[in-house]
Each structure stands twice: as structure tokens, then as C-alpha cells.
Design a protein around this nucleic acid. Structure first.
Length: 419
RNA sequence: GUGGGUGUAGCUCAGUUGGCAGAGCACCGGGUUGUGGCCCCGGUUGUCGUGGGUUCAAUUCCCAUCACUCACCCCA
């Protein structure tokens, strides 16, 4: 048997309804807040991701699905959405009528990592970006939107972590201070951190090895190194969050693994995903648009891990079996032919209707109706065919009423909930 | 890429000195020859993950491999 690719998964009936629900809520909220959907390709030129995410990141170094296509081009299955959205924003000059654009994307991303709880090689993200707004109010709005979505989905126990990574002006100073400390703690760092401390020192802050955390317990906080502008922005963000009633945790270890982030970063964390704590994350990337060849416009955005969110929401959700409003049980070929017509017409009228298309006994058909949770069963056999009166049974009350063929459509519709 | 755990029926899982592969649930049929759930009776379902080795004999022991899963790394 051919099985699906490792780290990929099928979302089957019963679970897919949950995904649809999450998607509906998200789309609804995005509309309320002025976001518009964009649909972008799932493959891009490899160069795009290298330049945006950063050559030294894990994603680019070892996780991308990159290959040479038949024409010899280097292409990559997108590992995240922001790069593509920025590319589209620039390519189609979406900034030209108005630099301020709120865009969202829902779709699959691909990273070749070892799968585990809350982590897949094809995973889905709900991605939102605000272009052209320098004010930290944009970041606050994103966080608010994020928490609102979680609230609507009845997620409890989510924590908001925020940090600022500074900008081109203040980050070098911090970086120098951090490297000084890293040099002084020397061999107390784990192997990975020893390697990272020169190439990407900020990442060391994110390390979970106890020895490293210990060694870094009095690491400089980037917040202390922020330049005037960054400081002011960060204060403003916090003030905005507070006035929105959002409680957050100042998390100076919140670094994030993509190089394009500047200033505000944030993450929504939960304890229900095994070793994965982030259900959503994001931040500001004020230089990326320019670096990818566009105008010098700021931007900020977030990504929600759809799979992870579904896992959390699914914990408190029941099954999502849709129940037919009417099940038609027919006995004999002629009855079945007529029942089939009814079935199609009722479906066209907007009723949820099912019937047995094979040659089964009444008992077996009643069983099916029961198993499906049908509210009513419409029965027809030789006798009914002759008298031109079908029988409609309410499965809960067991009450049965005769329904003349002539009034059938209208009677069934009337007796069906919600019609 | 590294490490641990697990692969037996559609599902959840039993299965030791190596000797014909099991239970519950589900499904199908009957009891009720035209009426669901409860009950009773009967029935179906397996390359025991895959390939090799040892053995008269392997689900069981050995090797390899694949998959799932959890963790490291990193992230959503």
C-alpha cells in the first residue's frame, strides 16, 4: 500500500469541520478589521526565501523543500508566507494607490523537519500582514485580533509574550554587549550555542538547555539597549495593549528564528502542544520590503499555526458529524426510483437528505438512518406507491404521519427544523 | 540529522519455556418475511508493518528496513 509522505497528513471528515469552523471565524474577523485575502503560489524562486528569511537560519539551511525544476530553475515550496506576500505587494505595486494594505493568507507551508506533536512537514498557517503603518498600534491591532480569534474559538490559557528586537541603529550595540557576555561564559554553553554565538548571537537567548539558560541568566536585555525611537515604540505598544485590556509577558528571550524581524516581536504560547509552545507568532519587519526591492515601507504581521490551533480547539470539541434532516427509505425498485427523485429535489431545496441507493431491507435502512442520526425518515414501498401516500416518521417521537405525494415536498420542508 | 517508545481485525488492544491468531467495540445477517436505539443468536474481517536469518516449526528469537509517535534542534 502506498502511504502518504512522512510528516504530511490527511484531514478527514469529522476533523475537517473543525478546520472549516476555524477558517470561518478567522475570515470573519479579518473582514471586520479591514483585511483582504490574497492567494499566492505555494512555490517561489529559492532566492526569495534566502534573501528574506536569511541564509543563516535553520529554515534556509536545512529545512526547505528546494529542487531544480525541469527548466533548470531553483524553486522552493514556501516555508512561510510573509516572503511571498511581500513579493506580491512589491510586484503588483499594491502600495501605489495606498501604501497601507492589510492582507491575509491561509494555506499550506512546507518545512522538512522531523515531525512530532504539533509539527508537520506540510502544515497550515493563517497569516496576516499590515503594510505601510509605522505606528505600534498596528502591532497592537494584530495581537488583539489574534487573541480575539482564540477567544471566539474558546481557547483558554494562552499567554502573550512580547519583546523588541530593536532596529539597525540599536541592535549592533546590543549584539556587541551580548557577544561580550557570551565570550565570558565560554565553555558553559552547549555545542549549538557555541557555534551560534558568533554567527547569530541572538539565537543563543532562545536556547532551552538548562546550562545555557543558567549562563545567560544575567544576559543583557535588549530592551535596555533600544534607541530612542525603538524605546518609544515599544512603550507605545505596551500602552496600547494595556488599554485594550491585554495582559502580556515581557519576554526578553523572545527572539524568533527569522532574520527579517525588527522591533516588536510577539508570540502566543500555550502548554497544550507538547514541546511546541507557540500557537502563533509574529512581529515587525520594517526593512524587508525595501530589501526585496520595494519602497522603504514598514510592515508587521503574524502567522498562526493552523494545525496547532486545531489541536487545541479540538481538545474541547465533540464530533462534528452532520446529521441528515431526512433519510429516505424505499422498498422495491419502483419506489426507489421515485424516492431518488425526491432525494435529489429535497437536496436542491436546501435540505440535508440521504437515502439508501442499494437494495436493502427496511430494517437495515432504519438502522442506517439511526446511525446517521437522521431526524426523520420518509418511507415508501409498494403499498404507499399504490395509495400515493408516503409515511414520514419522526425518529425521536416515533410518530408517523401519512404524506400524500402531492404535498410531499412542502410537508417535508415544513416539518424540518430550520425551514 | 540524533535519541527513546510503538507497529497484531475498520477502531482500542490481549497474546512466554517458539506449536492451528484472540477479545471488546464496529460491521453484516437473523430473532421481528415492512420500522432504528435495548436484548438474544449467528457471521465476516488479518500478507501479526516489510524483507531476510535461526528453527521441524517464528506474532514470539536475531539482523535489517519502513512507518507511526515523543523528545532534542528549530519553529507555526
Amino acid at each position: 500500500m502506498i502511504q502518504l509522505i512522512r510528516g504530511f497528513k490527511d484531514i478527514l471528515p469529522g476533523e475537517v469541520e473543525l478546520w472549516q469552523k476555524i477558517e470561518r471565524e478567522a475570515r470573519g474577523l479579518f473582514e471586520n478589521f479591514g483585511f483582504r485575502e490574497v492567494r499566492i503560489p505555494i512555490m517561489e524562486k529559492t532566492e526569495l526565501f534566502k534573501r528574506s528569511i536569511g541564509e543563516d537560519t535553520d529554515i534556509v539551511e536545512k529545512e526547505m523543500y528546494t529542487f531544480t525544476d525541469r527548466g533548470g530553475d531553483q524553486v522552493t515550496l514556501r516555508p512561510e508566507a510573509t516572503a511571498s506576500i511581500v513579493r506580491a505587494y512589491i510586484q503588483h505595486k499594491l502600495y501605489s494607490p495606498d501604501p497601507v494594505q492589510r492582507l491575509y493568507v491561509i494555506g499550506p507551508m512546507f518545512r522538512r523537519e522531523r515531525p512530532q506533536k504539533g509539527r508537520y512537514r506540510q502544515f497550515y498557517q493563517i497569516d496576516a500582514e499590515i503594510f505601510g503603518v509605522r505606528s505600534p498600534l498596528a502591532d497592537a491591532q494584530l495581537i488583539y485580533l489574534l487573541l480575539l480569534l482564540l477567544e471566539r474559538l474558546k481557547v483558554v490559557g494562552a499567554q502573550t509574550h512580547i519583546n523588541s528586537l530593536g532596529c539597525q541603529a540599536c541592535r549592533p550595540d546590543f549584539r556587541a554587549a551580548l557577544q561580550k557576555l557570551l565570550a565570558s561564559v565560554g565553555d558553559r554553553l552547549c555545542e549549538d550555542c557555541a557555534r551560534r554565538k558568533d554567527r547569530n548571537p541572538l539565537r543563543v537567548l532562545d536556547c532551552k538547555v538548562p546550562a545555557c539558560r543558567e549562563a545567560l541568566s544575567d544576559a543583557p536585555s535588549i530592551v535596555d539597549y533600544l534607541c530612542g525611537d525603538c524605546r518609544k515604540d515599544f512603550d507605545e505598544l505596551q500602552a496600547a495593549l494595556t488599554s485594550l485590556g491585554i495582559t502580556y509577558i515581557l519576554d526578553k528571550r523572545l527572539v524568533r528564528g527569522l532574520d527579517y524581524y525588527t522591533r516588536a516581536t510577539f508570540e502566543i504560547q500555550t502548554g497544550e502542544l507538547g514541546a511546541q509552545s507557540a500557537v502563533a507568532g509574529g512581529g515587525r519587519y520594517d526593512k524587508l520590503v525595501k530589501e526585496l526591492g520595494g519602497p522603504d515601507l514598514p510592515a508587521t504581521g503574524f502567522a498562526i499555526g493552523f494545525d496547532r490551533l486545531a489541536e487545541i480547539v479540538g481538545l474541547q470539541a465533540g464530533d462534528y458529524q452532520p446529521r441528515p434532516e431526512v433519510f429516505i427509505a424505499a422498498l422495491g425498485e419502483r419506489s426507489r426510483a421515485l424516492a431518488f427523485e425526491w432525494c435529489c429535489r429535497l437536496g436542491r431545496e436546501g435540505l440535508r437528505v440521504e437515502m439508501e441507493l442499494g437494495d436493502k431491507g427496511l430494517k437495515s435502512q432504519m438502522k442506517s438512518a439511526d446511525r446517521l442520526g437522521a431526524a426523520q425518515v420518509l418511507m415508501i414501498g409498494d403499498k404507499e406507491l399504490e395509495e400515493k401516500v408516503a409515511i414520514l416518521r419522526n425518529m425521536q417521537t416515533k410518530e408517523q404521519i401519512p404524506v400524500p405525494f402531492g404535498t410531499l415536498m412542502e410537508t417535508v420542508r415544513r416539518l424540518t427544523k430550520g425551514h
